[in-house]
Nucleic acid binder design. Sequence first.
DNA 1: TCGCATCGATTACGGATGTAGTCAATAGCC
DNA 2: GGCTATTGACTACATCCGTAATCGATGCGA
Lengths: 122, 122
Amino acid sequence: MTEKISEAELVVMEALWETAPQTANDVSDRVAADRGWSLQTVKTLLSRLMAKDIIAADQDGRRFLYRPMVARDDYVAGESGRLVNRLFGGRVSPLVAQLAQQDQLTADDIAELEAILKGLKS
Amino acid sequence: MTEKISEAELVVMEALWETAPQTANDVSDRVAADRGWSLQTVKTLLSRLMAKDIIAADQDGRRFLYRPMVARDDYVAGESGRLVNRLFGGRVSPLVAQLAQQDQLTADDIAELEAILKGLKS
DNA sequence: TCGCATCGATTACGGATGTAGTCAATAGCC
DNA sequence: GGCTATTGACTACATCCGTAATCGATGCGA
């Protein structure tokens, strides 16, 4: 059971999932655009992620190269499962029904869902 | 934009969504089973939910009857949408693909999903 | 070799959260 | 009419989170 990733930490994780390994500066630059965080803030987040064993760092000269220890897919799987359990009693179809009602389903989504279902039935 | 409902607050909300209105004692009894919280804890959570305008209370003699101001469906819709946006770039099908891969899809789910899709295409 | 720039580590601090104790009012019992 | 139990309000306090400043080590240019 990996520890919880906070909202701000997740932003850092997305940067690391996109490219790894990266230095603190790399991450900061990548993230600064949207969030306007200082370099220090990003470093703190990296430290916290290290403390939670969600990322690791390899020394490279006198700085560190950070890389994820948790795959994005695994994280996403955990979060999705948690949501489905918390709000839909573990059932997936009500979730989709919910999203369908919100018009969050694009035509592409519908086509892909059909493909997924077809695959499952085989 | 309703304010954020914390994990502990959500437990109280579930009790209120199930039955409303209820007194603080009712909620506490209902919730005590799983969580073992003291009555005071539940009251604090009720206060915070009141402060966030997520529930309301009507005086009944010298106590209050609490009731939700936010429908469970609305909350669930918000959370689902948020998850899909945060983790799947707003696309629903990757979410379902993800859950399918985790074997979170029951046969019933699959049948229901097909029904939902059929409804959408009409 | 000496100062400066750079890097990670440590510390800070306000707000949210989880959990609960205490207080003041009040209503009912004796 | 005074005591006690109940109820909501207020207060407490440790932890986590978001955001950042500061510190100490170290490598590099002058």
